[in-house]
Write a protein that binds this DNA or RNA. Sequence first.
DNA 1: TTGTATGCGTTATCAT
DNA 2: ATGATAACGCATACAA
Lengths: 330, 330
Amino acid sequence: MATINDVAKRAKVSVVTVSRLLNHPEVVNAKSATKIHKAMEELHFQPSQIARSLVKRRTNTLGVIMPDVKNPFFNKWFRSLEEHATVHKFSLLLCNTDDNAEEEMHYVKLMQAQRVDGVVIVPYSKKSVEYLIGSGQKFVLVDRIYRDLKVNFVTTDHFQGGYQATQYLIKLGHTRIGILRGAGYIFPDVERYAGFEKAMKENGILIDQELIINCDLDEAKAYERTKEVLSRRKKPTAVFSFNGLMSSGFIQAVQEMGLSIPQDVSLLSFDEIQGYGIFRPRVTHINQPIRSLGEFAIDMIANIIQNKNSTRQGIFLKPELVLGDSCRRI
Amino acid sequence: MATINDVAKRAKVSVVTVSRLLNHPEVVNAKSATKIHKAMEELHFQPSQIARSLVKRRTNTLGVIMPDVKNPFFNKWFRSLEEHATVHKFSLLLCNTDDNAEEEMHYVKLMQAQRVDGVVIVPYSKKSVEYLIGSGQKFVLVDRIYRDLKVNFVTTDHFQGGYQATQYLIKLGHTRIGILRGAGYIFPDVERYAGFEKAMKENGILIDQELIINCDLDEAKAYERTKEVLSRRKKPTAVFSFNGLMSSGFIQAVQEMGLSIPQDVSLLSFDEIQGYGIFRPRVTHINQPIRSLGEFAIDMIANIIQNKNSTRQGIFLKPELVLGDSCRRI
DNA sequence: TTGTATGCGTTATCAT
DNA sequence: ATGATAACGCATACAA
C-alpha cells in the first residue's frame, strides 16, 4: 500500500509538502499540487487514517454497541446514526451484544483499544457503563439509562408511552389488560410498566398479577405464554406487548388458537411489528422517534468529543400512539 | 488515555517489558507481571490498536460494504459475518450504500484509508470493484458478482433459484406468470430472470413481455405496478417477485384491491418477506443460505489476508424452495 | 513555498 | 529476564 513517502518520491517533493497538500492545500504551489495529485492517483494513494490517528489522537470513528441489528427498531436507528455520523466524518464500528453482559464488556474494552473517539451504547449491563466512566471514555447512553448515573443520554419517555397506551385501552373499555413484558431489568421495561401502573391506578382499576407476564422480551416466550394465558377461564380482553418481537409471538399464538384480533382479544404493541405494512388488522402501537434518537445521539457525542458543552445532557423524547385496527371497544 | 508508557512508569519497568507482557507473557518474570497487571488495571489501560496497527500493518478490522442493514436479508447476513469475524478477531466497520454508486466509491476509499485488512462487499457498481482491484485491497464479493472479473466471491446460485421457482409454478399449472424484477443491472436480478426464462422455454411456454415488470427491486414501485397489472384484462395467475420488499408491495396492492392470495393470484417470493412468521397465507419463497454466505465470506477474506491459499475462489451456494400456502394449483 | 526534525504508542531487533 | 533504539506513516513546529 502506497504511503505519503512513495507519493513524495514520485512527485519529487518532500513528504511534508504532500502532507500539506492533504491538510492545507491552499498553501502549496499549484505546480507541486498537480504533480502530487498525479502521483497520488497513479499510486491509488489514500492517507493512512491509522498514522493520522496516532498523531492527531483522533480516529474519526465511533463505536456503536447495541443489542441486535436484526431488530427492526435498532436497524432503523443504526441507519439514522450512520446518516448523521457522516456529517461529522465519523465511521461506525458496529457491535451486537445480544444483551449478553460479557459480550458487551468485551466490546466496550475493544472500542477503547480501538481508540474510538466516542461510544454510542444501548447498554444491557450497568457494569459496562461503569467501566466506560472509569476509563474516561466519551460516550452517550441511548434508550436504556440509569437514573443514578450522571451521564449523557437520549431516550424515549417510556413511562409516558406505557401510560398513554394503557389510557387508550382503558378508554376503549378494557380493564382486564394483559402485559407481555421483560424481566424488569432494563429501563424501558421498568418505565413502561410504571406508566401502565399509573394509568390503571388513576382509573381505579386493580391490576391482576396473573396477567403480568415476563417473557424476557422474547418472541418464542411470548408465543408460549400467550397460549397459556389465552387458555385460561379469565382471559384478558386486551394485551399490551412491550416490544415488536413479543407482539409477533402473541399474534402467532392467537392465530394458531383460532382466535382473532381484535374480536377475541385486542393488541397494542410498543414499537411497530415486523411486517406492519402487510399484516391485518394494522397493529396499534407506540412509535418511538427513532430518527431523533439517532440524531441526538450523534450530536451529543460529537459535542462531547469537541468539548463544546461540558454540561451533562439528558434528553427524553416523546413517543406517539399510532392507531391501527387491533384494539376494539368493549 | 493511559499508554504503555504510563503503565511502565507506574510499574517501574521499561515499556518493552510491558509490551512483552502483552505479546509474549510467558517470557516475563512473574513479579514484574504482577506489578504490571496491577498498574494496567489502575489505569484502565487498553493497548492502542492504532499504534499497534501502525507497526504491524494489520488493523484486525474488516470493512463491510452493503446496500442496507434495514433489509432483513442483509441484517441476518451481517450478524452471521460478525459471529465469524469474532473467531478471527476482526472488528467490523459497517457501511450502507443504499445502492448508490457514489456512496459506494466513497466508502471503498474510506476503507482503504482506514487500512482495513480486508473488505467484504455486496457491490452495486462495477467501478467500486475495479477500484478495489487497482488499489491492491484484499476483498471478497458477496451476492453480486461480475463474471468477467477474476475475483474471489460467494454468492447464491440465483439462476438455479429462478429456475426452481418457475418450475414449481409451472407444475402447479401456471403459464401466465408475472415477474416483479429489478432493472437487470445487478447479477442476482439477471440470473434469476435467466433461470425463469430457461424454465419457461423448457416447458414450451411463451413469455408475455407485458408481465415482466421492472420495479427497481423497490417496494413502492412494486405496489404501484401491481395495481396496474392486476387491473388488466389478461392478469397473471401467479407472480414471482424477485425480493422480499417487492413481495410486500405486491401484497399490499392485492389487499387493497380486495383480492386474495392465492385464490385470485399466487405469489412466490425470492427471499423471505418481512413478517413472514405472522402473515397468512405463508408466503412460498426461495431461501438463500444466509449464514453460509456470511461464513464463507469471512473464511475467504481471512484466508486471503493470511495469504494461505493464493488460488482464486468462487463459491455458488444452492438456494432452497420453502413451501408456504401462497401458490395454488390451477 | 518548501524542507528538517520530532513525536504519536507500539513492536521488533539487538544488546545486556 | 529486561532494556535501549529504531521504525511504522503521518502532522506539526520551526527553520530556510
